[in-house]
Design a protein around this nucleic acid. Structure first.
Lengths: 222, 222
DNA sequence: GGTTAAGCACACAGATCGGTGTACATAGCG
DNA sequence: CGCTATGTACACCGATCTGTGTGCTTAACC
């Protein structure tokens, strides 16, 4: 009772260390950046002693990599594994998940060494993400799915980076471009009527079909 | 002769301090990142004493801001002020200037504080860049030039960020999208024949017209 | 030649960084 | 119970960080 206050469910602040460390790290890295987050602060937020941290991770570098690995291992399953969306809708639904700066871009910029495990994983993730887009594009009957997948991935990265610089959400602009590219790549029969015209101005909703059925505006970690 | 070696033109390492500091800073920030570049290393590379640096700049923050300010104050004049290119060609020529990670994106990611002068300037620069694209689009006779300008700007940011993560150049993908968007936005008469079809695969040259007349693959600082 | 502004060398400050060593406490489990 | 995993408290390390204080040297200009 002197120290050692108990948490709600009786986990007296001990025993779940690794989870708490990773959670705190993800939060702090997102909010302050990786380099601006010190180990001491990290431990304080996680409610963990410094010694414990170094019993779970060999160093900060490993912790960073672990955070990225835990972030979105299945690559937007709520979008890509959605059964009640057509492939076209799924492609466009990826542009509805709002988020702060993509942590993989953040890591790639904040960490100078291209060989750092976090950067290698970021690379893998981005490739895998594009691959999921490609698969979905193929499923939608697109002629050149690799191209469309890579293009849509670039749009998402652009929105993330640009939003950070401008301090303004730019995802709608990316979504507008995506709509154009998708409908252009799709066999004309597969495009819902009304989708071929001028994409609506770059602001507001563009993905009429996708939006209605899947609002994935989730409170994701990033 | 003991110390004080003379440079080629007799500038004996003194007297040009401010220039050398900014030059060294731009180089190091680009190569290693901002946070990974220490003041001591900076001074060593610049051939300048630490005291001198702090007589020119109040601190590292001011130096960072100054670097960004000096970087591209006129916003790609070799592209946007090119007289022997049509507006359409100029829009596409912006996708021919290869470069490492855009320093404004880098600053926006590396510096957590959104109110930092460097981040404010980065914001201004990005807005101004989009404005130049918008102006050019308007000049080209595009119906909604603001939209196209913002879209093309997002593509460039996407290429920069994504190239950093993937460790691979992705500008060609962005250029392919740009070609689609520009030609779609342009009055059909203004689009050169052969430019309307499938944009060439996402790799290789897309801007047939622009490339021939303006290869701006310059060795820019970034 | 003499004045002045610019630059240099160098020691040093205070903070923070990532990381460790040591000894103790506790929870879970057989 | 007693053993072992896990976690804690806390001091401490060397390195590095941005930034200063002080005194000297030198280039440029009148």
């Amino acid at each position: 009772m002197t120290k050692l206050d108990k948490g709600p469910q009786g986990l007296r602040r001990g025993r779940g260390a690794r989870e708490r460390i990773v959670n705190a790290a993800q939060q702090l890295f997102r909010d302050q950046g990786i380099n601006s987050t010190g180990i001491d602060q990290l431990c304080a937020v996680a409610g963990v002693s410094k010694r414990t941290l170094y019993q779970h991770f060999t160093g900060k570098d490993e912790l960073i990599a672990e955070c990225l690995r835990r972030f979105d291992p299945n690559i937007l399953p709520e979008v890509f594994d959605s059964t009640d969306l057509t492939p076209r809708e799924r492609l466009l639904a990826a542009f509805d998940v709002h988020a702060p700066l993509c942590p993989f871009i953040a890591a790639a910029v904040e960490i100078p060494d291209p060989g750092h495990s976090a950067r290698l994983y970021a690379r893998d993730y981005k490739k895998a993400f594009a691959a999921r887009l490609t698969d979905t594009a193929r499923e939608a009957g697109v002629a050149n799915p690799e191209q469309l997948g890579e293009q849509l991935a670039l749009l998402l990265d652009g929105a993330s980076a640009r939003s950070r610089v401008l301090n303004t959400e730019t995802l709608a602009t990316a979504a507008a471009i995506a709509a154009v590219l998708v409908d252009k790549a799709l066999p004309t029969a597969a495009v819902p009527r009304g989708a071929g015209g001028n994409p609506s101005a770059g602001t507001g909703r563009v993905t009429d079909a996708a939006t209605s059925s899947a609002e994935v505006d989730a409170e994701r970690g990033w």
